[in-house]
């Protein structure tokens, strides 16, 4: 665990250096283009996190092992944090490059809906007190929410094609050095995700232990 934390921290710093200093400045977009590295890295990990929610949800319903539920709950929360970062860095990029804070670009829009779905997941969990019921109901929502995302994406894409947008995202031709910086950043954020999941599941474990103790104290 300690080694994982150190490696993740080192990778994050390396990613920061490669993204901010080492990678060449974009010929057209200039320095702002560097937002791209943490933006894509968090986006990739948000998708990873929500996929883990799906896996944990299915596995919980199959095995009824609470560890799966803890994994799903932890991953959902971290996924929401990452998606929040995507939704914060995205508009900054949009403002700098396209001149507006927000466009109803399919990818932006789908990410926003994704955020709403998993915030809903967390609100749902908070609204159910019994642990086994919370795990079961959240798992069903975790599965449905995930299945829904591709349909949302298709519908949003179609919606944009019949409402043509003025602003076209410029194509990013990645130089090799940029690609290296991007991959290092993605790897660094993935390690960070692993660390966060480890911390968050431990929190969930202690929380369950506290709840069990409180129950015992009440019945004793």
């Amino acid at each position: 665990m300690r080694i994982l934390i150190r490696v993740a921290a080192a990778a994050m710093i390396a990613g920061l250096y490669l993204g901010l200093v080492w990678a060449p400045e974009d010929a057209i977009l200039g320095q702002v283009q560097r937002i791209f590295y943490p933006h894509v890295a968090t986006a990739w990990n948000a998708y990873l996190a929500f996929t883990v929610v799906l896996v944990g949800s299915i596995a919980y319903l199959r095995t009824r092992n609470e560890a799966w539920d803890r994994l799903a709950a932890s991953s959902a929360e971290i996924g929401v944090v990452f998606t929040t970062l995507v939704l914060l860095t995205g508009p900054i990029w949009a403002r700098a490059v396209w001149g507006v804070w927000w466009t109803w670009d399919p990818r932006l829009t789908t990410t926003l809906i994704l955020w709403f779905i998993y915030v809903g997941y967390l609100v749902l969990r908070a609204a159910i007190d019994q642990p086994d019921r919370r795990a079961r109901i959240a798992a069903v929502f975790g599965i449905i929410g995930f299945i829904d995302v591709p349909i949302v994406h298709f519908s949003v894409t179609w919606w944009r094609t019949i409402h043509p947008s003025v602003i076209r995202p410029g194509k990013l031709d990645l130089e090799p050095a940029m690609l290296v910086a991007l991959l290092v950043n993605v790897a660094a954020f993935t390690l960070l995700y692993a660390v966060l999941v480890a911390c968050r599941t431990r929190l969930e474990r202690v929380s369950a232990a506290v709840a069990a103790l409180r129950e015992r104290l009440r019945s004793a």
């Binding site: 977009l29 937002i35 943490p38 944090v81 929040t84 970062l85 990029w93 403002r95 700098a96």
Partner: peptide, 25 residues
């Protein structure tokens, strides 16, 4: 100049949110 400013804000936001989340954990 404004490009650098946006870049700074974006990175500041990312690290602030990450450290904020770690602190909350």
């Amino acid at each position: 100049q404004t490009g650098l400013w946006f870049l700074f804000v974006a990175f500041a936001v990312v690290w602030a949110v990450l450290f904020g989340y770690l602190a909350s954990l």
